[in-house]
Computed example of a mutant assay.
Amino acid sequence: MTNDDRILVVIPTYDERDNLPRIVPAVLEVDPRLHVLVVDDNSPDGTGEVADELAARHAPRVHVMHRAGKEGLGRAYLAGFEWGLGEGYGWIMEMDADLSHRPEDLPTMIAASEEHPVVVGSRYVDGRVTVVNWPISRLLISLFGSWYARTATRVPVRDATGGFNCFRREVLEAIDFERVQSNGYSFQIELKLRAWRKGFRPIEVPIVFTERDTGESKMSKSIVREAIWKVWKLRFLDLAGRL
């Protein structure tokens, strides 16, 4: 099996030492083609050391990238994408470390990626909402955020803010990472928009999103504020042909 037959799951981490030993083995059990890259932003709780232990235990399918400090979700994913492309992986996926994205949904996404270059694991398909243990306030924020992003950018995805996605390598190769402007909540929106504008239409497949049961959410007011104005900047850049 060559690397271009394999699938890299990029998992950014910051203070996820309790969740990482749960999510990594669960991902590896799904499919022998799956590899994991943990991108740790120098977590003060020792997540990086836990990641190294997992890499040693599950070599050669688990890899670790240590970064100097907390630089944001977008920068972490881009670093992971660059590494995965350099290593020749045929598919690269995004996945949270906190088990809100279920490993059991991976086969559906992988199967869809055989025919579709961009697969979005979606919480909002065919009028259904598949979210577990979220307060109604958080659900409404997410629903509004996806509607707002879709309205502003015209990207044809109902779960525009979702972070459980699969890209064939040619999609990420077509995107100029140096031009990506978002780093927080809006990063997922921008990534889908740029892929779509390069001619890769996303397909959404249903997943079940479960609220984390360990650790704290990384959502903050500053991340939400960035998303509110950033989507309109992306729209204007798109209209001007400068995206």
Score class of each variant (00 low, 15 high):
residue 68 A to T: 10
residue 89 Y to A: 06
residue 128 R to W: 07
residue 158 R to Q: 13
residue 31 D to Q: 11
residue 243 L to G: 10
residue 80 G to I: 05
residue 146 S to T: 12
residue 37 L to Q: 02
residue 49 E to Q: 12
residue 199 G to P: 06
residue 22 R to Q: 14
residue 166 C to I: 15
residue 78 L to C: 12
residue 156 P to E: 13
residue 40 D to T: 06
residue 239 L to Y: 09
residue 5 D to E: 15
residue 223 I to N: 11
residue 133 N to K: 08
residue 112 A to T: 05
residue 99 L to W: 02
residue 135 P to H: 08
residue 134 W to C: 01
residue 108 T to Y: 00
residue 167 F to D: 06
residue 31 D to M: 11
residue 91 W to V: 10
residue 91 W to Y: 13
residue 181 Q to G: 13
residue 35 H to N: 14
residue 104 E to C: 09
residue 186 S to Y: 00
residue 74 G to R: 08
residue 85 L to G: 09
residue 200 F to H: 11
residue 2 T to M: 15
residue 84 G to Q: 07
residue 223 I to F: 12
residue 231 V to M: 03
residue 225 R to H: 12
residue 166 C to N: 03
residue 98 D to V: 07
residue 111 A to Q: 11
residue 43 S to E: 07
residue 68 A to W: 00
residue 111 A to S: 12
residue 75 R to M: 13
residue 13 T to C: 07
residue 94 E to T: 15
residue 129 V to A: 12
residue 160 A to T: 15
residue 240 A to P: 00
residue 198 K to A: 15
residue 223 I to A: 13
residue 104 E to F: 03
residue 34 L to R: 02
residue 229 W to V: 14
residue 24 V to F: 04
residue 57 R to K: 15
residue 167 F to N: 08
residue 209 F to N: 09
residue 214 T to R: 10
residue 10 V to A: 02
residue 235 R to H: 14
residue 27 V to F: 07
residue 131 V to N: 04
residue 8 L to I: 05
residue 132 V to F: 09
residue 205 V to K: 01
residue 104 E to W: 00
residue 186 S to H: 02
residue 133 N to I: 02
residue 98 D to W: 01
residue 81 F to D: 03
residue 157 V to L: 11
residue 75 R to Y: 07
residue 113 S to D: 05
residue 148 Y to S: 04
residue 42 N to T: 01
residue 32 P to E: 14
residue 149 A to D: 02
residue 100 S to F: 03
residue 119 V to L: 03
residue 72 G to D: 05
residue 165 N to V: 08
residue 147 W to E: 09
residue 147 W to C: 09
residue 175 I to D: 00
residue 26 A to N: 01
residue 234 L to I: 02
residue 217 S to T: 15
residue 49 E to M: 08
residue 144 F to H: 09
residue 142 S to L: 14
residue 242 R to V: 10
residue 151 T to E: 00
residue 88 G to S: 01
residue 77 Y to V: 07
residue 139 L to H: 11
residue 141 I to C: 04
residue 208 V to F: 01
residue 124 Y to S: 10
residue 230 K to M: 14
residue 132 V to Q: 05
residue 135 P to N: 15
residue 101 H to G: 04
residue 23 I to D: 00
residue 171 V to I: 08
residue 143 L to Y: 11
residue 172 L to H: 10
residue 86 G to Q: 08
residue 24 V to C: 08
residue 121 G to H: 07
residue 184 G to M: 10
residue 113 S to M: 06
residue 130 T to I: 05
residue 161 T to Y: 02
residue 239 L to Q: 11
residue 215 G to P: 04
residue 237 L to P: 06
residue 183 N to W: 09
residue 162 G to Q: 06
residue 207 I to N: 02
residue 196 W to D: 09
residue 136 I to G: 06
residue 103 P to C: 07
residue 160 A to Y: 00
residue 213 D to A: 10
residue 131 V to Q: 11
residue 213 D to N: 09
residue 182 S to T: 10
residue 31 D to R: 11
residue 162 G to E: 03
residue 222 S to M: 15
residue 134 W to M: 13
residue 67 R to I: 12
residue 109 M to C: 10
residue 109 M to H: 01
residue 125 V to I: 14
residue 31 D to L: 09
residue 207 I to P: 04
residue 37 L to E: 01
residue 17 R to N: 08
residue 146 S to P: 07
residue 80 G to F: 00
residue 44 P to I: 12
residue 109 M to A: 08
residue 5 D to N: 15
residue 67 R to F: 01
residue 43 S to A: 14
residue 179 R to C: 10
residue 199 G to I: 10
residue 75 R to W: 12
residue 207 I to K: 02
residue 15 D to V: 03
residue 5 D to P: 02
residue 190 E to R: 01
residue 18 D to I: 04
residue 150 R to Q: 14
